[in-house]
Design a binder for these strands. Structure first.
Lengths: 228, 228
DNA sequence: CTTTTGTATTCTGTATGCAGCATTTTTTGT
DNA sequence: ACAAAAAATGCTGCATACAGAATACAAAAG
């Protein structure tokens, strides 16, 4: 496959002025995507030799990337036996959603206080675009924009730690939510909740925004539990 | 110094049946402690060659450990320039405490529902021991037990994700709180709050426990802000 | 035919070597 | 004497090489 060769050296006779991306860092993102998108299923062993050859890199940066992902909680390190893609039980997912809910409720309250009008308008723009994708039944882009909106609201809270932690949980859950198959009616309900979120944000009604975010993530459990 | 040689191989003519500790893993814990205890101050560059020689290990496992800690948020990776111990601004600390507060409020609610009587008794035991250390003015052990109690309460919530995330934040904050110099009166107030916590837990009064935990961490900001 | 033990292969864990980038020092020109 | 450019040094980033552990396979014994 040699998938990464395109990233590793961007065939640069080109004028690419700065290429200061460390290989292990590129690998972290690449592997993370592979895990999220299901190219590497839960339980899969990450074979250093094979995987390295496949990606066209040596074992050293690959190992460093794996250690990084282990700390992120996407892979598990088994001594003398390498790394495997972590498998999440239904309870694990439920636990994550519970924490995520609490964090987003907090984010909602803070966002209403800290956000500028311009920032809120940006979130609205994301939302409108998401609605377009929804009507076009473009599930992939819909998911992506959905996540982006949640991330954007968290950013509005202006709390660096909250942004960090939220990103970690979001990443761990991406794999699940990506796969989650919802029926049309549940999909519609989720979109409706998003509508509420945006309008609460625009009204800077922190109680309502927090409540909607909480309800949204509470319902998220119902939407994904079937696929577990 | 050769500090790590004592950890690396536990001189085991002993009956230790399994000795599967990877060097990079040992290094992660060792470096983490060094950072928390201030042996490596914020802004310090982690020199691979020098540090590796000092600890008696080669650069490879050291680099792997650094990548792990980078993902934990204790060090920062600067491309082509190595790693430096991350420096937290007062706002960063405040942000962390805000998130931690929300998480512990959640933990308090869940703990009252999920904990067994035996588990609660264990927390009480920790608390009593902490009080002893307090009366003995043994600040170091007091701090340690204090953290242990918070961790224990979070464990009672039976939420794996919450335990994870809480541990991450706790680790990042350890460095700060370790250094935090409180006056005697503030120290006494913190102890008093702990008293309240335990009694609320024993009564399984989740509203009150959650409230006390929240207040405790809210006040924590006052207690550490001076030393920043 | 099943089980156990010895061997071989494969993979992880660690060390070392080499190339490129950053930084610092030295040298040269004004 | 000062500034700018060039060389030299030191460090990171990556690849490769070697040693030890785990697993798979095969052969022999029950």
């Amino acid at each position: 496959m040699d998938e990464i060769s395109s990233l590793q050296r961007r065939a640069d006779g080109s004028a690419g002025p700065i290429r200061r991306t460390a290989l292990h860092d590129t690998l972290v993102n690449h592997l993370r995507d592979m895990i999220i998108e299901g190219d590497l299923e839960p339980g899969t062993r990450l074979h250093e030799g094979q995987l390295g050859e496949q990606l066209g890199v040596s074992r050293t940066p690959l190992r460093e990337a794996i250690k990084y992902l282990a700390s992120e909680g996407l892979v598990e390190l088994v001594p003398s036996r390498g790394a495997v893609v972590k498998r999440f039980s239904p309870k694990d997912v439920h636990d994550m959603l519970t924490v995520l809910r609490t964090l987003e409720e907090l984010a909602g309250r803070l966002a209403c206080e800290a956000a500028t009008d311009a920032e809120i308008a940006e979130v609205r723009a994301l939302h409108d675009e998401m609605i377009d994708r929804y009507k076009a039944a473009d599930r992939l882009q819909y998911y992506k924009l959905n996540q982006d909106i949640h991330t954007a609201i968290v950013r509005l809270a202006q709390n660096s730690s909250l942004i960090d932690i939220h990103a970690i949980l979001q990443t761990r859950l991406k794999r699940i939510r990506f796969i989650g198959h919802e029926g049309p009616e549940k999909w519609a309900a989720a979109v409706s909740e998003h509508e509420e979120m945006i309008s609460a944000l625009e009204a800077r009604d922190k109680t309502r925004l927090s409540e909607v975010l909480g309800r949204h993530l509470f319902n998220a459990w119902d939407r994904v539990r079937a696929s577990l």
